[in-house]
Structure formats: C-alpha cells, structure tokens
Amino acid sequence: MIGLEVLGIRIISPEDPPVLLLQEEGGTRCLPIWIGAPEAAAIAVAIEGQQPERPMTHDLLGAVLQLLEPGEGTVVIESVDDGIYQATLHAGGHEIDARPSDLVAVAVRLGWRIECTRSLMDHVGVEVDTAPSDEVEAFRAFLDRVTPEDFDDEDNNH
C-alpha cells in the first residue's frame, strides 16, 4: 500500500467537476480523482480547518465513527473501473464500501490514514516534478489536457 496525502482540490473550469489530488507520501506521483462539488467543498472545509456553524454530514459520520469505533481507521482506494474509483473504509475490524471523496472527507476530519494500492498508483498515477513552481505548472498542463475518460480501465488491470 502507498500512503497518500491530500494535495488539494483543483477546479479546471466552472463547467468541469473538481479534481481531488492525492500525492504519494515521500513520492512525486499523484492520484487524480474527479469528484462532485459538494464533496469538494466538504474536503476543502476540513483541509482549511474551518468549523461550520452546524455539523455537516461528514462531520456527523466522523463523530459517529469515533463513538462506535474509537481509534484509527484507514481509507483504502483500491481500484478504478470505467473511470469510477472504488474505496473502502477500514475501522474497528469492519470494511465499508463508499465513494473515495466521502471517505477522504471523513479521513481528513479524523486524521485517519489514506492509502491506495501500488497497482492503482502505477496504473493511473501522474508523475509530478518535485520543484514547487514546476509542480504547479505540471499540474495545470496535466489538468488542461486530461479528461475523466482517460482513466477508464479498458483492460481491467488494477
């Protein structure tokens, strides 16, 4: 498994869905996942450490998980099939299937680990230059030319 850090949310244009960028720990590759606007907002709020006036759904889920299964949990992004990523929450001896964006929103709130399989990163990971200014330009160039269809898994290798 490869540990992932939330690099951020990027919006290419108002017409396109947001992209969640997860960078491998200690590495230079990123896993780009197209997500919905509400999930992007939920992740951004958590990354920025903002506390909403009233708990959002991901805050509620995080609070319930802490009550029922206190301790550490792990989000595992396992595969992509026809552009749809599959992920599982591992907590308290249980595995729960959910969308990666929802699981990342909860993991960021709880400080839980996010991982992906090595085969997934090898299959869809995007190499990023390590220099900060080059990194931004590389991602802009990548996001300008890539579409969700580029990540369709035609040969079913995960």
Rank of each mutant, 00 (worst) to 15 (best):
E135S: 12
E137N: 09
G49S: 05
V104R: 08
N156E: 15
G8L: 05
A87E: 08
F142M: 07
G111V: 05
P32I: 00
H123N: 13
D97V: 10
V136Q: 14
V136Y: 12
E115M: 14
T147E: 14
G8R: 05
A40K: 01
D59F: 01
Q50L: 10
A41V: 10
E135V: 01
L4M: 10
P70F: 10
R113F: 04
A41N: 08
E95L: 12
W34E: 05
I43D: 03
A44D: 14
H123K: 15
V128S: 03
A40D: 07
D82T: 07
F151E: 08
I2Y: 09
Q86V: 06
V136K: 12
G111H: 03
W34Y: 11
V128M: 15
V128A: 07
F151D: 09
M121H: 08
G27C: 02
D155I: 00
D134V: 08
P70G: 11
L143I: 02
H58E: 06
L120N: 09
W112S: 07
A141T: 15
P132E: 12
E24Y: 00
I9A: 02
D59G: 06
F142H: 14
T117H: 07
E135R: 15
Y85L: 00
G26N: 04
D129V: 11
I84T: 14
V45T: 12
E72C: 04
R113I: 06
G111F: 04
M1H: 09
G8W: 07
S13F: 03
V104W: 05
I11L: 06
D122G: 01
M121K: 03
F151M: 01
L31P: 04
V146Y: 05
T147P: 02
W34V: 00
E72Y: 05
A44L: 07
R118T: 15
V128E: 06
Q66E: 15
A107S: 12
H123Y: 14
H123D: 13
R54S: 09
D81T: 13
E48V: 02
H123P: 02
I47F: 03
L7P: 00
G71V: 11
L143E: 06
I9R: 02
P52Q: 11
L67A: 13
E25N: 03
A138M: 10
I84L: 11
G27I: 05
R109I: 11
F142K: 00
V75S: 11
D155K: 01
V6N: 01
I12T: 11
I2D: 07
L20E: 02
D16C: 02
G36I: 04
R29F: 00
Q50E: 12
T28L: 04
H94P: 00
E95Y: 09
L120H: 09
I2S: 05
V64C: 06
R145E: 01
L143T: 03
V106I: 15
D97S: 08
T117W: 06
E24T: 15
D81H: 14
I96S: 05
V76Q: 13
A37T: 14
P38D: 06
P52M: 11
S79K: 12
G27F: 01
E15P: 00
L120A: 10
H90A: 12
E24R: 02
Q50P: 02
G49I: 08
V104A: 10
A46R: 00
